[in-house]
Amino acid sequence: MPTTRRRIFGLPAGAAAVIAVPSVWMTRMKTHDGPISDHFDGLRFFDPHGAPPKKLAEVLRWQFGGERKRVNWPDWVPSPYADTPPPRVEGDKVRLSFVGHVSWLIQTAGLNILVDPVWSMRASPFSWAGPKRRNDPGIAFEALPEIDVVLVSHGHYDHLDVATLSKLAAKFSPRVVTPLGNDVAMREADRAIKAEAFDWQDRVELGSGLAVTLVPTRHWSARGLLDRNKALWASFVLETPVGKLYIVCDSGYGDGGHFRRVADAHGPLRLAILPIGAYEPRWFMRDQHMNPADAVKALADCGAAQALAHHHGTFQLTDEAIDAPAIALGEALDQAEVPRDKFAVLKPGQVFEF
Rank of each mutant, 00 (worst) to 15 (best):
T3W: 08
R7Y: 10
I8P: 03
F9M: 14
P12W: 11
P12L: 15
A16R: 14
A17V: 08
A17L: 08
V21F: 13
P22D: 10
W25G: 08
M26N: 10
R28P: 02
M29F: 11
M29H: 12
T31P: 03
H32G: 00
I36C: 10
I36L: 12
F40H: 02
F40N: 02
L43N: 12
F45S: 01
D47F: 01
H49Y: 05
G50M: 05
P52R: 05
P53S: 02
L56C: 05
L56H: 09
A57R: 13
W62Q: 12
Q63A: 15
N72P: 03
W73E: 04
D75N: 11
S79R: 02
D83P: 04
T84V: 13
T84Q: 15
P87Y: 01
R88I: 03
R88Q: 05
V89T: 13
V89I: 15
G91F: 08
D92S: 08
D92G: 02
K93V: 09
V94E: 07
V94D: 04
S97F: 08
S97V: 15
F98K: 14
G100D: 12
G100K: 11
V102H: 08
W104G: 05
W104T: 04
Q107H: 10
L111T: 05
S120R: 05
M121W: 13
A123G: 11
P125I: 09
P125T: 10
P131Q: 10
K132S: 15
G138R: 12
I139T: 11
F141I: 09
E142V: 11
A143I: 15
L144S: 07
P145H: 08
D148L: 00
S153D: 04
G155E: 01
G155A: 07
H156D: 08
Y157T: 03
Y157M: 07
D158Q: 03
A163Q: 13
L165E: 07
A169R: 05
S173L: 09
S173I: 04
R175Q: 14
V177W: 05
N182K: 00
D183I: 00
D183R: 01
D190F: 07
E205S: 01
G209R: 07
A211I: 00
V212W: 00
L214I: 01
P216V: 03
W220Q: 01
S221K: 00
G224I: 03
L226H: 12
R228T: 09
K230W: 06
S235I: 01
P241T: 06
G243D: 04
Y246N: 00
I247A: 00
V248R: 00
D250S: 10
S251Q: 07
D255T: 14
G256K: 10
R260I: 07
R261D: 15
V262K: 02
A265S: 15
G267F: 04
P268N: 08
L274T: 01
P275Q: 08
W283Q: 05
W283L: 04
F284R: 11
F284K: 09
R286C: 12
P292F: 14
D294I: 10
A295N: 06
L299T: 02
D301E: 04
D301I: 02
A305E: 14
A305P: 02
A307S: 04
A307M: 02
H312N: 10
Q316F: 04
D319S: 04
D319Q: 06
I322A: 01
D323H: 11
A332R: 13
E337N: 07
D341T: 08
V345L: 07
L346Y: 10
P348D: 09
Q350G: 05
